[in-house]
Amino acid sequence: MKPFEYLRPSDVSEAVAALAANPEAQVLAGGTNLVDLMKYDVTHPGAVIDINRLPLKEIEQLEDGTFRIGALVSNSIAAYHAGIAGELPLLSSAILAGASPQLRNAATCGGNLLQRTRCYYFYDASTPCNKREPGSGCGAVGGVNRIHAILGASQHCIATHPSDMCVALAALDTVVDVAGPTGDRQIPFLDFHRLPGDHPERDNTLQQGEIVTAIRVSGGHFKRHHSYLKLRDRLSYAFALVSVAAALDIGEDGTILDIRVALGGVAHKPWRDPLAETECAGQPANRDTFQALATRLLAGARGQGDNDFKIEMARRAIVRALEQAAAGTPQIQSHKAIF
C-alpha cells in the first residue's frame, strides 16, 4: 500500500470540504473494497477520508412508507432490519446473496453502490485497463472475458458492476441522497451508475467532492411477488455471473399490474428496460409473457467470446425468477436448489 494522509471528519460538511479540496482524496467507509484495491495498487489515494464517524447510520421509515437507509448502515443491518425484511424482502434477499456474513458486517450501503468492478485486468496493475488508466487500452476485449458484459458495453470497456444489492435497488423505486460542495441533491437510482462509453474510468454520475449520504427505497407493493436469483460458479461467497431481481404486482384476475426486472452481472450498471416492463401491464403473469419480456430485454445482447453463455443463462434466469416471483416462492439464499 502506498502511504497516504489520513483524515477523520466528524460531520458531512467537513467530509465534503476535505474531499472537494483534494482531487487525490478518496472516501473510506467499510473498507472492504477500497483497502483491497489499495493493496493491489489498483488505486493509490493521496488522502483517505475516513467517514465512519459521520452520523449516517440510521434507518428510518418515512410517512409514505419509503425507507431511508443511511450511507453508513452496514449491509447486514439493512438486510436483517425487520421493516426492510418485511416490506422490501427483495432488497434483503439480494444483500444476503452477496459476499459473506463478515464482509456484510463491515460493508456499508453507500460503499456497496460505489464498489468497483471485479474485472481481472482492472485488478492487475501490470495490464492495460481504460478504467484504471484511461487511454491504456482494454485487456478484456479479446482477452479472458468470462465474467464480462453482454449488454451496454463499449469498445473501451466491457466490465460489469458486481453488486447484488444494487440489482434489487434498480428493480425497486430508489433515489440516492448526495451531499456535495454546492449543496445536496437526489439522483434517481437508474441515473446513478453509467454505461462505460468513452469514459469507463467513471462508474457513476457523482461529481468531484460529492458523497452519498443515504438511499431512499420503496416498493412495498412487491412484497408478495419477488425473487432474487443469483447464478455463480460456486454456491456461496462468489460474484454473480448473472443475477435477476424480479418483482411483480398481480391483480385478482391474474394479470400484471406492475412488473420489474433488473439484471446483475451483465452490464456496467444494473440493467433494466422500464418501457418493456410498462408494456407488460395488463398481460397475464405467465411463462409466455415472461419469455417475451426476456427476449426483449436481451435483444441487444452481445457476447465477447468466453461469456457468450451468459445470454442464454440470462434468458432462462429471467423467466425462472419471474416464475418464482409469480408463485410467491422466492429463491431462498440458504437453500441452493432452484425451483
Binding site: L28, G31, T32, D36, V48, N52, N105, A106
Partner: peptide, 10 residues
C-alpha cells in the same frame, strides 16, 4: 469482521 481489510487507525 475480516481483520485484513480493516485499517487499524479507523
Amino acid at each position: 469482521i475480516n481483520s485484513c481489510l480493516k485499517l487499524a487507525v479507523s
